[in-house]
Design a protein around this nucleic acid. Structure first.
Lengths: 134, 134
DNA sequence: CGGCATCCAATCGGATACTG
DNA sequence: CAGTATCCGATTGGATGCCG
């Protein structure tokens, strides 16, 4: 089977996509991957860069990425200790399609916002009228 | 700014990507989108097609997609009632980058599985030894 | 500095029952 | 058929404190 076909995703294939997206679709993974493009960064650097992430979640996110073979973890036992994270080749290859999705989001977010606004407006219009004429 | 640049995602841009991925990265959204490529489908058709989804979650998923302007909902007030869902143009344009991500997942899942296996092996090897020589 | 353990609140999602 | 409403368990993620 050729994944470049127009309808290549049968049930099993979709499951995998869904699974991948569940993994990278969590709250922080994408942000970390984006920060790691081009340069390796140490833990505290990432913590400062992501803005809002807790230490716990950064650790968990990096552990998962490491487990998936998407980042490498390099410990330098100095004082104070230093740990650097870097995208693997696999990680970099994933960054490309993520980037594509990012470009799409960037390009269409106004339309999405508009659609949401319209939808919510109708929502409120439907629930508000207590006597038919609000 | 050109989103096709090599480093186009600043903090704000990344947030949007993350937000988009959080939306489509839930348990069912991608599967529904994939099923809707090419043909519109009615509710029970989707329910049968997704396999494992509850009625509740299918409804919620479709509502969110509708709110984002990615699918249209068409009610035919017959008996029994009939509701068809169809990807909008915006929805179809999103299907493309998702497909790219799917292709990536399909292409690299063996390497990810291998990386996970290796990682878990080392994990167990590190936690097992109760007296140094298990 | 980097990270683990614990506790806890919020959200997610499945099962079930009921409605137009 | 296509939902809505409710209940409840599972998962997520933040805050905090301790450790090497």
């Amino acid at each position: 089977m050729d994944v470049t076909d127009h309808q290549p995703m049968h049930s099993a294939g979709c499951m995998r996509v869904s699974k991948l997206l569940s993994r990278i679709g969590d709250k922080w993974t994408v942000l970390v991957i984006m920060l790691l493009r081009g340069q390796s960064r140490r833990f505290s650097d990432l913590k400062r860069g992501v803005d809002g992430i807790s230490q716990r979640m950064l650790t968990l996110t990096l552990r998962n990425l490491e487990r998936d073979g998407l980042v490498t973890r390099t410990v330098t036992p100095s004082i104070p200790p230093r740990v650097d994270y870097e995208l693997t080749e696999l990680g970099h290859s994933l960054a490309a399609p993520i980037q594509a999705l990012g470009a799409w989001a960037f390009e269409h977010m106004d339309r999405i916002d508009a659609a949401q606004a319209t939808y919510d407006e109708k929502e409120n219009a439907a629930s508000s009228p207590r006597s038919g004429i609000p």
